[in-house]
Design a protein around this nucleic acid. Sequence first.
RNA 1: UGAGGAAUAGUUUAAUGGUAAAACAACGGACUCUGACUCCGUCGUUCCUGGUUCGAGUCCAGGUUCCUCAGCCA
Length: 557
Amino acid sequence: MMTEITETKDFIRNIIKEEMENGRFSQVHTRFPPEPNGYLHIGHVTAIYADFSIAEEFGGQCNLRFDDTNPIKEKTEYVDGIMDDIKWLGFDWEDRLYFTSDYFDQLYTWAIQLINQGDAYVDDLDMDEIRDYRGTLTEPGKNSPYRDRSITENLELFERMKAGEFPNGSHVLRAKIDMASPIINMRDPVMYRILHADHHRTGDKWKIYPMYDWAHGQSDSIEGVTYSLCSLEYLNHRPLYDWFLDKLGIDHPQQLEFGRVSINHTITSKRKLRRLVEGGHVDGWDDPRLPTVIAMRRRGYTAAALRDFCKTTGLSKSHRHMDVGMLEHAVRNDLNTVSPRAMAVMDPLRVVVKNYPEGQVEWFELPDYPQDKKNRPATRKVPFSRLLYVERDDFMEEPPRKFFRLGIGREVRFLGAYYITCTDIVKDEDGKIVELHCTYDPESQGGRTPDKRKVRGTIHWVSAHHAITATARLYDRLFLSENPEAEDDFITDLNPDSLRVIENIQLEPSLANASSDTVYQFMRKGYFVPDEKESTPDALIFNRTISMRDTWAKRGK
RNA sequence: UGAGGAAUAGUUUAAUGGUAAAACAACGGACUCUGACUCCGUCGUUCCUGGUUCGAGUCCAGGUUCCUCAGCCA
């Protein structure tokens, strides 16, 4: 007897499981259908994860299909970018890369079938007239005067549309359904419009292009897709999806809808993202403050973290407004296990260890993964000398209660080195502290003393003469309000402090050959990654992926 | 005010007529050579009102709120 594992499933997986048991389909085949008109963002990641992971769990496959039915908006640049992002996220469509434009000929043949069946007609009404005839949410529409043309006339007109004899907007092919349907989508939806535009794949071959509704279900059917997962707003389109497939009498995939994900303090509307980029409010589609996949990647977010975020977040039948904290938790959680540690001082304060011999240097061997030394034994050498840098805010002249770091007369542990006691401070004429005078206990090397006395504080440090100077870019939420999309003008809601550049941070020398495919934990400060575009060995620039949780800093608030 | 969809902790998701659960957040504590990590604890009369039932988040009736649809966008 096997142990029953009761694993929580979302409603989509439950439906699929049930239908597979009933034998409705013999396999699970999904597809991810992006339109190549922009870059992928965190909202798409949820859909990608659903499409690929569900197929995989049920032993099926997931296709990548570019939904390229609108040549005016689509570009090859986006096709390449999207493929890159999906690969980086860790998903593989193998040899199943498709384009809706691959099916333009088949779609055209099927359109003729519908005309012959009396299920489609060419309409001469212009855009405004069609809108007027459509009616409103509460009033039925009325039939177009061209609705009852003969099949022969429809065939001839449609052929001439295809041949490019008519200008844009002069004719459309419409499905003949029901102008009084309470479902507005069913009021004779447009199947083809005339567009004299070059297509990124088919060039100038076509003068007519299919609409989403006419293309999508048929493309799914051609590819043998069994489950066509999409977002909630397509629920209204399902009757039409089904209608086309039924009229054509071809394989009929099941459309299933789930709620989109949005994250607070950011935006995912493609139009608004474009405005940020084009308006120069951010530094391109890969600006690390953006929720696009390329940006998150540049910032140091990992694919594993993103996948884990999707997994723990699940699927539901309503739109979700997620707290960015949940995403950040997934990032910290993954980085905590995979990031090598290093020391970097962001705001340097000089320390002279008075009783440490002038000119002496000791190289301490420190673990890269102190939290997992067994499985990750890598180490690096870090120099210690008489002149060091520590973090300015790790010293306080008048320390409050429960402050465990440096102060006059206080002893703390310098990570991986010695116990250090501050004896004196040096100020400049403005009263600003410029240097700390300290002593070290030679018996405390390795972080312990023979007398086993305890120190509460452990701080990081860098040897001044060996330190590498670098730049750090600290990112914060892009928008001040939780839901910038709801603001009258989301531009005015931009956080003026979303980027802080800090020059002259001091790094331990092992970071000299830091690479942009490794995210480092600067101990006690956060996770940092060299910027893949702008960091060079001579001028290192680190992006802060995310800060450490800091319960001490919170106390002050 | 047509049609469709959704309401469970601050947020997100479970519980499929049988003790309302988990993650994140917040707060309190323990531990710690990272004030990180880890661990422990605290935080809900399931949108409302009735009904069925020994028993209702779940079933029924009525109501409320929110979302989607009137592109020749997807």
